[in-house]
Design a protein around this nucleic acid. Sequence first.
DNA 1: AGAATCTGTCATGCC
DNA 2: TTGGCATGACAGATT
Length: 822
Amino acid sequence: MIKEYFTDGLIGLAILLSIFRTDLVGINNLINYPEVQEIILGQTVAYLPASYNHIINSHHPFESSKHLELSNEAFSAWHLNINNLPFLRERHRTEIEAFLVSGTQQNVEFENFTGTPTTLNVEHEDNQIVDLSGQNLPEESASSYSEATISNDNVPESSEDTLQTAIADTSIVNNPFPGCNLTKEDLDLIDVLWQQDVDLGVGKEVFDLFLRQEIETKKEQELLKHQEWEKSQLQLREKQEKERQEEAEKWLKENFRRDGETGEWIRNSNGPSSSLDYFETDASAENILILNYTAYIDSFTLEAALDYLSTNIDHALIKNLDISPDIIPSYLSDQLTDNCLIGTPESQGFQQSQQLLSHQDSLEESLNGLLDFLSNEPVEDNSASLDQFGIDLNTGNLTSDMKLDQDLDAQTDYLIQNVTMQSQEIQPVANEMNATFPFLSTNSSNQMNFDLDSLSFLNSLATMQNGGLDDGELFENIPVDSNETLLNANIPLNESMDTFTVLHDNFSQSLGAMASPSSYDGLCDSLDGLEGAIGGSDLSASSQNNITRPYSKVNRLSESSNDSGYPFQSGFSSSSPASSSASSPAGCNYSNISTSGNDTEQDPQNTQTVARHAVAHNHTYNTPPGQVPREVKKYAPKEPSRKGPHSRDQRRLEEFKIPYTIDDIIESPVETFNEILKSHKLSEAQLSLIRDIRRRGKNKIAAQNCRKRKVNVIVNLSDEMVDLEKARDKLLKERAEIEKETLKMKEKFGHLYTHIFQSLRDEHGQPYDPNLYSLQQTSDGDVLLVPQSMNRNKYSNSSSASSSPTSSKDSVNSKKRKSFDE
DNA sequence: AGAATCTGTCATGCC
DNA sequence: TTGGCATGACAGATT
């Protein structure tokens, strides 16, 4: 009877606590371990798992759902608050449901004895029920419970003397805890607590150690099962990701060729892909599409998402995706029919979508529809689901949390998939791009009303892709220090080129996305080169620049490696005019000399093509990590004036009348070189000179390669550092949000705790003294009113009790004894 | 003139 | 053992 007085309050408290626990479980599975639970929730040694739910369900499935708010206004408000917390809604979509078990004739005695038992369930998104009242008890346990109930019912309530006698008399004969080694003191303690009408939240039978061990074993088994399931899911995801990457890699290889030296991906000039041709020949508009895709997504509001889906998704595309129209929310389907199939102009569609939005019951409903739609999409690793758009349920906005530099991987994955898919279609790629990303289309004037004429640099890019762009032109239009990657979609993109400077950091990623995720590094690498080429990118066909343009260190490195190839593969073919002239004594021209054909990183077959398309990096290797490389000093393009050993060697070669150039000596394979040494009668001095020349030449190339590698390492580390800094910032932000939510929940918990505790009354109708009692929750979610003496015992024994479950159990017994003594 | 940078060379270790 | 590569260190050239 008294318990009925505060049952709902307890339920509320239990739910609240359970929510905390549920959330923690979501954060990390380690939380499930009892030891961790103890750390987080406090010791559970004094707590006893309840088993109302399963016991009653297994024997008396007469529970009826009951809204808790019906019986407690405060809880009602709280319940609503909890449900409306974005913290919960965003992460778990947790629903809170409580069941009040209604008694029947079969268990009315039970109710009389323990008050109204309650079971609390927190139902998760995946329909997994977290039962707050205990685990799945084995059938025997339930039977045991029933027996215990009946047995205890024989004991008159509130009759201490009779109870003592009864227990004393029946403790051996009718031991309610078969297999239990509880001492008489333990049993006495339990009964004293009963008589005090202190709700232990459990029946006496749960003191059965054997039963509790079984429960714990079962719990561990479930945990293991869950972990295995997660593992298999992870493997499945990895497998899918791998397949997707392989496909993308295949596509990339069909259309690109990797520069053996720089690792950059160079487009095949005669590649078979129509999509690439599309990108190139129709370049300006489509590259703009990619860029604006990222820009648009960045500030994608929910309204915009709905608008996009409702106005622009083509049924043809849906067919391609093998999506049944049935799975599309009806309102979307209607809109699709109206706008796409019937061909409503997009501007009109936009208005209609606005009306549509206004006709929705709520933004939330719209969102659910969207989520359903996206979740049914067969492209499983479609990472562009709205979940990743940082949807704020409170505002309906896709928040700017989705920083391009952090989530772009996911977005570009989405983009890549579609691009890849489109490349296989018969239709012109442009049409499909418009179908897939209509908001990127230049026709989507209602959304992105930019002016193509202002995007001249992209035209320049297209030109560059065709190999015709001088290295300086592109970046004169692109300020390179645009570190800010967030872009507000409200920025009118047609204003000026300045708008696109903000996009610059995303530029490489977007283009990388055009290729494939697996090629992302390669393309990004090359585009990083674009990005960092402050001193002018090196398109290595810089022979045309040697006179008119200054060249940097990068130039020199690239020239020596990219231009050369390996001209001596067939021996001393180097008496070719080019080589000879390059290495003539008068022309110790480092910018033209072909000395680095031995570069192991390059693909000799493609060297010439690579040289035309290669984009050099700004490898200012003295720049400390994290620091923007300062402008590369431009060396005068004049002929090297110094009279280094190279020219001296050439002169000595002539003096010795050795009919080979320095390049011949350096570049020839070992076999050929040895044959030359043998075939000519050379003096020791001549041989020594030739060997020295070869050794120095080889070492020079090695040094150049070594320096390039060093620069690359530094650049990569710098990039990595930037990424890590961004990741750190993101995590810090997340932590701050979580702490904020936690604080909020703690506050609510405090209020609720106070409310419930003040509502409790003892058998005399007096409130419990907060100094003597406290409410605590077990690891199973049960809420107990625990005398402070037990707390003190618990804390005094905490160091030894928390080490293992076994010691916890031992400590339970000792505490019970102590409490009994008191 | 001096600092910063680039580049070739040497020495050394490793394969 | 030899040749080649990688790399630190150094010095001269260049800006």
